[in-house]
Amino acid sequence: MTTMTLAKALNAGLRKAMEDDDKVLVMGEDVGTLGGVFRITDGLQKDFGEDRVIDTPLAESGIVGTAVGLAMRGYRPVVEIQFDGFVYPAYDQIVCQVAKLHFRSQGRVHVPMVIRIPFGGGIGAVEHHSESPEAQFVHTPGLKVVACSNPADAYAMIQQAIHSDDPVVFLEPKRLYHSAKADVDESAPPAPLWQSRVVRPGSDVTLVGYGPTVSTCLDAATVAAEEGRSVEVIDLRTLSPLDLVPVQESVRRTGRLVVVHEAHVTLGVGAEVAARVTEECFHSLEAPVLRVGGYDTPYPPARIEDAFLPDLDRVLDAVDRTFAY
């Protein structure tokens, strides 16, 4: 058992994956000598060498495109995209190549690649550094997409993603990198990667989040409890595939569901959750499924990002609204 920040847990998970399989490579901008701008790859190049921890030229399409070739040669590249808003130059390689090669080749070509993306806002950054592009990748057949929300998951999930023979977009809540600290039991058997999980049981209303909004949901549940409302919180963990079994089981008990993410609400993951829960739990629902998320604007200047991001009050307000039906 070790107390770790989320950043340290990712670092430890990467290290473990590299120790376990010498085909695992880490590549990206500044991941070597510097250890990454968030220090997630700190010390890895020193211990595993420049051939396995590769400082790349500053070109995202080049990073992902060369990682495809490395994967075809039998390697398992773990690519770091420095910030969410910088993934778009690599979008074609991710969507047209990474996602489709297995399908096009009738299963002959595997692309066991992990694309790590620090995502989400709340760090007071300049533009393009606070975005939540997950829906773009969830909407792309051939990719799997997961988001960790705490150090223990981060440690296990990064290793599981690397172990996956399918390409995985791995979303890391950057504002929790150094603030979320928890005990991580490195020897504990990890939960299955492709499953969501109830992180706080409750009976009156279901709150669903992932990545950075899980802690927002947990805070909301604590406050709601003081007001006599029992809130069940579910961490989706995996966005593609989307595991809604625990959500549906929960909604059948609570009849009320609020989905919370930082991404823009329109056509976001919450829209998909709402549609599927409505299909499966129509007769259990006491209220429409509500979504709390970023507004349909570009990410705003940092001084007003708190007005954009779903916070405790907006989540609690949505909870209240589900009881108005």
């Binding site: 051939d51 399409s61 190549q97």
Partner: peptide, 21 residues
């Protein structure tokens, strides 16, 4: 590869793998 030029990066990455082998 239909997307124009995308495969040149795959070739380069494959060649980086050849080096590592």
């Amino acid at each position: 590869t239909i997307v124009i030029g995308a495969q040149t990066l795959h070739a380069t990455g494959y060649a980086m793998g050849v080096q590592r082998d």
